[in-house]
Structures are given as C-alpha cells and as structure tokens.
Simulated scan of single mutants.
Amino acid sequence: MEWMQSSELARRRAFCASGIVLGALVLAVLSGCSTFSQANASHQKIVQARQLTQRGVQAMHRDDWENAEKLLAEAKKNAPYDLQARMHYAQTLWKTGKQAEAIAELESAQTLGSDDPDLHARIGRMYLDSGDPTKAHISANRAIECDPKYAPAWQLQGDLALVRRDLESAKLCYIRAATNSEAANRDVQLRLASTYRQLGQPSQALACISMVRQAEFGHRLPADVGVEQALAYRDLGRHVDAADCLAELAETNEMTADLLYTWAECEVAAGRLARAEYAANSALQVNPQHASALQLVGQLPVFRQQAQQTMRR
C-alpha cells in the first residue's frame, strides 16, 4: 500500500514538473514573440527613417529647405542614433536661419560619431561661419586626426589660415585638399587660385582656374571663376584678356563698382579708351561717388591726347 502511494506521489510530482517545464516553454515562446515584434518594429522605424532621410536630402537638392527640415526631423525622431540623418537635419537648421540649433545638434551628435571626420568638418565649418575660429580649428584638427586625407578638413584649415592672413599656410592646406579630392574640387581650386594670386603667382592661379573651366566645359563663364581669371590676367600684364573677360561678365552679371573700375583700368592699359570710358561710367552708375572712377574719367582727355601724339610720331 505504501508502495502504491509512493508511486502515485512520484507520478504527481512528474506531472507537476512537466507542467512547469511546459509553462516555461510557453512563456519563452511568448517572450520570444514579443522580442521579435519589438525588433521588427525597430527595424521598420529604421527603414522609415532612411526613406525620410532620402526624401529630405532630395528636398535639400531642390533648395526646399523647410520641407527638408520637416522630413529630417521626423527621420531623427524615428532613428535618433542615425548620424547621417542628424547631420543633414543640422544642415537644414542652418539653412533656415537656426544657426545656434544647428551647432547644438551637431555637438549632440558627436557622442554618436566621435571618429567621423565629416561630422567634425561640418561643425567646424559652422563654428567658422558663426565667428568662432578657435573652435573651428579644434574641429578641423579632429577631422584630420580621424582621416588625414579628408579633403574638406584641409579646406577648412585653409580657410582658417586665410582668416589669420597666413597665405602660405592657406596655400599648403588647399593643395592638400585638392590632392585628396577624388575629382577637381571647384571651391578648393578657386580658393587656391586666389591665394596664388595674392602671393604674386598669377601663372599658378591661372592653372587652377583652367582646371575649373575644364570641369565646367560648355557652361557660361561663372562670375566667381571669371573674376579670378580676369585678375590673374591683369597681374600677368595681359590687359586685353583681362578686359575682355570682365566685359563678358558685365553682360550677364551685376558687378560691383570696384570690379567695373578694374575693367576700366585694364581697358586703359590695353589702349582702348572708348571702352575704358564706358566701363568707368558703368562704375559710376553703381556708385556715383567712386573716387577712382571719377579720377579716371577726368584723366581720359589727357590719355586721348597722349595717344594722338603717339600716333603722329
């Protein structure tokens, strides 16, 4: 009898143990389903964030900054650890006049990507544009530490050198930026051209401009490229080329009184006094008090008399 009771007790214990195991398995399955569901929801948010980021970047390319800001804000909300979304979002904040918020956004994002050179270069550029070259210099150095061949960081260092009026250092930084760019970087080449010209090396400046012109073959001469080209021609003593370049720019662009006066100067040096008078008067239309243009107009009769005397000889 005792043996039967003992056997029955063992069966009950085994049954209870089986129930416990089965319950544990059910809980594990349910927990796994919950975890899978959470993981799936998280994955969907990441996918949605990437789609929103892509749409935001497309809006940025269309210069639709307000719409881009909304899309990227939503992308950041869905994936707060997505560094690319946050960097693009900061750019939209900057473009819509929220400079302080843009900088704060990138400063916060630095905790996500401390080894990302693009992040450091971007915030460094914002620091510089907002008038804080010290922080910009620190950020540029961090970007270069992350990637010694990162061209935008060297370009930023070159711009900082220009702020210090250290033309030689600026030149070396721009050369590093140009060397490490996959293709001809328009902004770098133009900055390098300007730096060469200010260092009294107009031939090297023209070489940089030539690279930009080749990359933009078939397009109308852009104003910034044309100005640098004209000034390099002038410094080389190629006054006809300089004057023709500035005349071409004046046909399609609004020009400052100083540039129009430079055009007039080049026309005088080229011996084309009628064109010089037109250019000087154009400068005075922009700024009637432009002292140099007024002086040149007053000197034109003397220049004409000298030209006539030269022809008689």
Rank of each mutant, 00 (worst) to 15 (best):
L156K: 12
A232Q: 12
M211E: 09
I103Y: 08
K98H: 14
T92N: 08
Q229P: 01
L294A: 11
L83G: 02
A283N: 08
Q295T: 10
A170Q: 05
A279V: 04
R142Y: 03
A280M: 05
T195R: 12
Y81A: 13
L236Q: 15
H239W: 11
L30D: 02
R312Q: 12
V163K: 13
H137T: 13
K171S: 03
P133F: 07
A193M: 06
M1Y: 05
N253C: 13
L9P: 02
E277L: 08
L52F: 02
R12A: 14
I209Y: 05
V240A: 13
I175K: 10
K95Y: 04
Y89E: 08
H61E: 14
Q201R: 15
A102Y: 02
V212Y: 05
E267V: 02
T195W: 04
V268E: 02
D187V: 03
G131V: 06
M4S: 13
P202W: 03
M4G: 08
R191Y: 00
R62T: 04
S139M: 14
A161E: 01
V21T: 12
A68T: 04
L259M: 14
R142I: 08
A242M: 11
A215R: 15
E277C: 07
S37G: 07
L22D: 00
G226F: 02
T134K: 15
C208Y: 01
S169V: 03
S169L: 06
I209E: 09
E74F: 01
G56S: 08
Q44W: 04
Y174V: 04
H290D: 06
R220I: 10
V297S: 05
G56W: 01
Y150I: 08
V225P: 03
N67Y: 00
A223S: 11
D63A: 14
N185Y: 00
A247H: 09
Q84S: 10
M311V: 09
N281V: 02
I46F: 09
M1N: 13
E69Q: 14
R272Q: 13
A41I: 10
Q54H: 11
T310Y: 05
A136E: 08
K98C: 10
W65L: 11
A73T: 07
L273S: 05
T35K: 15
Q84G: 04
I46L: 15
E145A: 14
R11Q: 15
P202M: 09
D187F: 00
I209N: 12
C245E: 03
D115K: 15
P301D: 00
I103E: 07
